[in-house]
């Protein structure tokens, strides 16, 4: 089913994140995706994630489409000016990619080409508006298009950001600009999410909560200490005592999804290279 159609249903939506290789060997990624075909609603492909140069999102999205997987192309504002962004939106649509997730993108200083020029010619709100403008048959310069695209647009929100009011005001702006769905940063404690869920329940967009597969206690400690993500010591303890930390990470992810399921529109699973385990997570969800 097309992702835009899925968003209209009442079903619990599941998307997973795939990140393109650094290089051109795509087979292992496509094999991982094949394992999930029919089990999830969207394959979300990152755009030079963490500002690390990789194969492009659009190429993988098209290959996914060819093997019957519904792709969601991530598009950051970091590397392209408004000419390239609009051109790539048209290119994506021409290749059959309609679902676009728009985000600012990690700053180049966080990645592996630290000296790269940060572009940010448009911000995510402006890029959402731009995509909607292209749908009406005109570009940002006001010039008429020969054939206009159709998109299903998404954006991101961080439910843990402080102050929450400022994030929610951003969510409203992004919806006004054209966002139909949101995905969030990884969440490890449903209790912390309750206020966010209550305050976003009636918004006219689906919100997919980020769920991360923790593969070891070290990763959890890194995310907690370096990225400021709230991970309960209880989980870190379970991971460090487990005979197989990955299996324990799968259990934790499944528990989180089970807790979230009655309260939210869906989840966005980030397995960071362990996508072959996503089916196991889904099998364990109650």
């Amino acid at each position: 089913m097309k992702f835009a159609e899925t968003l209209k249903t009442k079903k619990f939506i599941i998307t997973a994140e795939l990140f393109p290789p650094k290089g051109i060997n795509v087979q292992s990624l496509l094999d991982k995706a094949k394992l999930l075909r029919g089990k999830i609603d969207g394959f979300n492909v990152t755009d030079n994630q963490r500002a690390v140069m990789r194969l492009g999102s659009l190429a993988i999205c098209r290959l996914l489409l060819d093997q019957g997987c519904e792709p969601i192309m991530q598009m950051t504002c970091r590397d392209r000016n408004r000419i390239a962004l609009q051109s790539d939106l048209l290119s994506a649509n021409t290749l059959g990619v309609e679902n676009i997730l728009i985000l600012s993108g990690d700053h180049p200083s966080q990645g592996d080409h630290k000296e790269a020029k940060p572009v940010y010619d448009l911000d995510p709100v402006q890029l959402l508006k731009t995509a909607r403008a292209l749908e009406t048959g005109v570009d940002l310069a006001g010039k008429k298009l020969d054939g206009s695209p159709q998109f299903c647009l998404g954006a991101v929100v961080n439910p843990m950001a402080d102050p929450l009011d400022l994030q929610l005001a951003m969510v409203e702006k992004k919806i006004e600009a054209g966002a139909q769905f949101f995905q969030t940063q990884p969440i490890f404690d449903f209790k912390l999410l309750e206020t966010f869920v209550a305050r976003t329940r009636d918004l006219p967009a689906k919100i997919l909560i980020g769920v991360f597969l923790l593969k070891s206690a070290q990763v959890a400690i890194f995310m907690k200490e370096k990225l400021g993500i709230n991970i309960s010591p209880h989980y870190i303890d379970r991971l460090s005592r487990a005979a197989s930390p990955v299996d324990e990470g799968i259990n934790i992810a499944a528990e989180l999804i089970s807790q979230l399921k009655p309260h939210v529109d869906g989840v966005h699973i980030m397995a960071l290279g362990l996508e072959e385990h996503i089916s196991e997570i889904l099998d364990k969800v109650k």
Binding site: C77, R78, S104, G105, D106, H107, S109, Q110, P118, Y120, D123, P124, V125, Q126, V156, V157, N158, A161, D162, L166, Q167, A169, M170, K173, Q185, L227, G228
Partner: peptide, 19 residues
């Protein structure tokens, strides 16, 4: 750091820029 004119990116940690 990202010259965003419509609001924050959501990456701030304890009120400080992620960059």
């Amino acid at each position: 750091a990202k010259a965003l004119v419509n609001g924050p990116c959501g990456g701030a940690v304890n009120g400080k820029c992620e960059v």
